[in-house]
Design a binder for these strands. Structure first.
Lengths: 164, 164
DNA sequence: GTTCATTATGGGATATCATGGGAATTGATG
DNA sequence: CATCAATTCCCATGATATCCCATAATGAAC
């Protein structure tokens, strides 16, 4: 599927409607459902959303009877699905955010969409600024690095080196 | 995919448009999306860009190597995906650079495309000259040598080295 | 030296996107 | 069956981005 990247600041009108950024709409439309699934992001005052494909992955972790997922992970999946809203696009590509979600994220007038690859988040601009400002410093401090997974192309042998 | 090599100096017009060098266009087109993904290069006042395949590797790596909702995943995604712009080619093969990116790289009227193999960078000519001369000095001073990564040919056993 | 093909560039015309608000539909309730 | 509230649809609008075409620069071919 297409990648969700970048940041998009859109307005929430009096009726609680907000435009989903066009690139995100196109990406999730390709997954089948003409809308998005949105749930409260339990770690922070923010929302997280995705198309049908990602939600099915979460659902799959609940149906697994083996030991692939820990109890904690299953709980997380269950809680996420319980609190998820299925929001359809209107003809202009907007969704209307339920009050419960707006309260959790402290949304008021503006919604900042933040791309995360296969998902996206929705923040109030203020909360986002406060939370994200230290990301680069934190990553440096903790020495967090991203090991690139092997390319998807055939017959490529993985290397174990450190990404910058 | 085809390698991105060499330097190409193109103009940025009043609308913020700049032609992506033809060889780069052809290389990234083969990856699917008719455009490039560009993000700030945090170590220097420059931009880095790539085609869809590379960005998907980053996105997949975040999900494969890091736990969902972990702090490390949060911060690394924030640094990479959230600052990335998806820029489509116009019919002439141009992209229009967002102001935020131009500011980070100090771009004003000219954009120097620098090939880096599977990615490329965009510099203002002045910043590049300054940075490049410094890099050359450092290489001389430390007597740097270049250690090649293993070949990609079949049945090659992975090595654990770090590029010089 | 001339011609042709390709790429880069410039700018006006056009289409698209985000947004706002009224009209119409739905569904719950008495 | 009537009424109300909530939601969804429909259309208008302004800002922006995209398309389209013209032209210049480059280099290859004859």
């Amino acid at each position: 599927m297409a990648l969700l990247v970048g940041r998009h600041l859109n307005k929430i009108d009096k009726k609680g409607r907000v435009s989903v950024p066009k690139p995100y709409r196109e990406a999730v439309l390709a997954e089948g459902f003409a809308g998005v699934y949105i749930y409260p992001y339990f770690k922070f005052p923010a929302l997280e959303g995705a198309g049908e494909a990602f939600m099915k992955r979460i659902s799959a972790s609940l149906e697994d009877n083996l030991e692939l997922f820990s109890d904690a992970q299953e709980d997380l999946a269950a809680i996420t699905l319980e609190n998820t809203f299925q929001l359809s696009f209107d003809p202009e590509g907007r969704i209307s955010l339920p009050v419960e979600l707006c309260l959790h994220a402290g949304l008021d007038g503006q919604a900042l969409f933040v791309g995360r690859g296969s998902r996206f988040q929705i923040w109030s601009p203020d909360a986002y600024e406060e939370h994200r400002s230290g990301a680069l410093e934190r990553a440096k401090a903790t020495g967090a690095t991203l090991k690139l997974s092997p390319q998807l192309s055939p017959q490529q042998s993985p290397r174990k080196d450190r990404g910058a």
